[in-house]
Write a protein that binds this DNA or RNA. Structure first.
Lengths: 198, 198
DNA sequence: GTCTATACAAAGATAGAC
DNA sequence: GTCTATCTTTGTATAGAC
């Protein structure tokens, strides 16, 4: 068992949950230990006990976020009897979940907006998240092409980039405009294009 | 002549330029009057003379940003002899400009990442920016379809949403990963899809 | 593991001299 | 229009009692 999976106290988990939401809605720079202390009814010093510095907390939040996605991606790829489109449908589930809320975007996208204000350890992880997801999408697209399920008009890596950017951008636009149908529309257009010319 | 076009002092312009860059690279919450004072070799109080509050400065920055885009969009639409694809090529110019720098994203996308931490006046403008651009893109797509230049597999408003999100997302990913080819790839894929099935 | 108390720096902002 | 000086609040962080 690695360090990443060592269990955490109940309070630590609550702190992580709240910090994740705060970063997604207000950004890393704009949230404070005080915000969390108020919400949980504890003192700032107690949070420092669990996460000595704000950077430590930020790293823990994104590491957990990444781990959740990694687990989901592995699960999807585990069942090779599925169609590639079904795999993509599973992939976009988290985006649809965020889409259902008025104020949530992908944690990594929120962080990417303030990239140069982030501690280096956090920056690295945002970069890792983006690279990993685009690579994963590329693999699914290649699989779909190989199996004759997709008819792409551009190389899989480029289509993967377009898809990933469109999903992340759609969440940002959704929140800013308050129009929750943004992601549904974007996903619909993407899927139609993968299916190939009618 | 409207208020928006009233001329500003040289110092005020320098402050706006720097604030714009700082918001694009570090975000609204993370930049301070001190950052600007240091860079310009002036005092914080001097900035407060030109822009009483941080919200005032933020509003001035995004208003100028929006005005620049509005002007560009109007210019593009002014010459109706152009092809719709040419109009789109002009539209993506600013994105390509940002794409050439390692750390710039669209001002509105940076702000969208920390939406709930923004003063209401700024939030409104981000929303306005997103709505305006998607509406403009929709009009160009409709024009292209009407003139037989584009063969879309989905309704123009939805394709416009996908395109816009993809462009914004591409800039964020570009900065996070450091791969400047992200936008070129995304634009290439988008254009190929507009041209219709081969 | 949580608290009180406190240190220390930075932020946004204002008053008033020049 | 810019400066010095100052105020107030907030943010991150630590020491040490319970």
């Amino acid at each position: 068992m690695t360090t990443a999976t060592r269990q955490r106290s109940e309070t630590a988990e609550q702190i992580l949950d709240l910090a994740e939401t705060l970063i997604q809605t207000r950004g890393y720079s704009a949230f404070s230990y005080q915000d969390i202390a108020d919400a949980l009814g504890i003192r700032k010093a107690s949070i420092h006990y669990h996460f000595p510095s704000k950077a430590d907390l930020g790293v823990a939040v994104i590491d957990r976020y990444i781990a959740r996605f990694d687990s989901a991606l592995n699960q999807i790829a585990a069942d090779q009897t599925q169609s590639s489109m079904t795999m993509l449908d599973f992939y976009v589930q988290p985006y649809l979940l965020f889409a259902g809320t008025p104020d949530r975007v992908c944690l990594s996208a929120a962080l990417a907006g303030e990239m140069l204000a982030l501690p280096p350890q956090i920056r690295e992880r945002v970069e890792h998240f983006f690279r990993t997801h685009q690579a994963w999408l590329t693999k699914i697209l290649q699989r779909g092409v190989a199996r004759g399920e997709f008819a792409l008009q551009a190389p899989p890596p480029k289509v993967a980039r377009m898809m990933f950017g469109a999903l992340q951008g759609a969440l940002l636009v959704k929140r800013a405009t308050g129009d929750l149908s943004q992601i549904d529309d974007v996903i619909a257009v993407i899927k139609q294009q993968l299916a190939g010319p009618a």
